[in-house]
Amino acid sequence: MSQITEHPAHLQHHFTDVHQQAESAKLGMWIFLLTEVLLFGGLFCFYAIYRSWNPDMFHNAHAFLNVWMGATNTVVLIVSSLTMALAIRSMQLGKRKLTMWFLAGTVLLACVFMVIKYFEYSHKIHLGQLPGKWYFFEGIAGTNPHIFFSAYFLMTGLHGFHVLGGIGVITWLFIKTARGSFSPEYYTPIEMTGLYWHLVDLIWIFLFPLFYLIG
């Protein structure tokens, strides 16, 4: 590690240089994402076990999800991942205005996702396709269809919270970018949020076929 004489404002005192600081942040973020994967992993296990116990019921129940809304949301999230990546790229090139546009686009797409989700949820709540003891819909063959909706609401719900968290953080990044806190030398927060946002996207890419496209 080389001795750096200059001391940029964003370098914290306990790091030797900016490189060490950026590398630490990156590793920390990856470990955090790993814990997120394990958090969802528990729910995926729960899904797999109950689906293997009630394969027919899961198949019957999934028909009540709106594939078009799900598919639209998948596209929306993938595009938002792209805009997020472009935001990082623009900051690397030092184009602050462009970065702000891309960040704003990402937030907008995330909001579109949540709005579509809202329509899906309210429709199900209206019909009584609800988890556990709240379930009162009739018309799904098979035992305990409420389990399917427990899994559906738990997993998409937890994912939804992550999208909301993402909206908050990206908005904060937008403000910071507007204030000029980032530069081609220092854009770690945007990069880290990008990693997080890709994971949120990735989890949805697993959720979509598992709930909407049961074959």
Binding site: L38, L39, G42, F46, P131, G132, K133, I147
Partner: peptide
């Protein structure tokens, strides 16, 4: 630890909203 987190969260949901995933009476 994340797996414990999700397990305890499920148990809380079981008690609060009755999602019934650990309840034998509900499958």
């Amino acid at each position: 630890t994340p797996v414990l987190g999700i397990t305890l969260a499920l148990l809380m949901l079981e008690r609060v909203v009755g999602i019934g995933i650990f309840d034998p009476a509900m499958g």
